[in-house]
């Protein structure tokens, strides 16, 4: 994975290289997919525990 800068202050990630894969027994998964799944789990748990703004108990 390569970091590219096209102009000052703008950072992009080059996706033209070979993907990095996780091997766990018969399970193979790209690192990108693993990161997305972990992000989804994080957002799911956060949605359950983070208080909802503007909620009044009398409603």
């Amino acid at each position: 994975m390569e970091l590219l800068t096209s102009s000052p202050g703008i950072l992009a990630v080059g996706l033209n290289g070979t993907g990095y894969y996780i091997h766990w027994g018969f399970i193979q998964m790209s690192l990108a997919n693993l990161i997305v799944i972990l992000l989804m789990l994080t957002v799911f748990v956060a949605a359950l525990v983070v208080p909802f703004p503007g909620h009044r108990d009398d409603r």
Binding site: F44, A46, A47, L48, V50, F52, H55, D57, R59
Partner: peptide, 14 residues
């Protein structure tokens, strides 16, 4: 324009 109180949770936003 109103919802039950239990809807006031982030899990109902998705």
């Amino acid at each position: 324009d109103t919802q039950p109180a239990y809807v006031a949770s982030w899990i109902y936003v998705f």
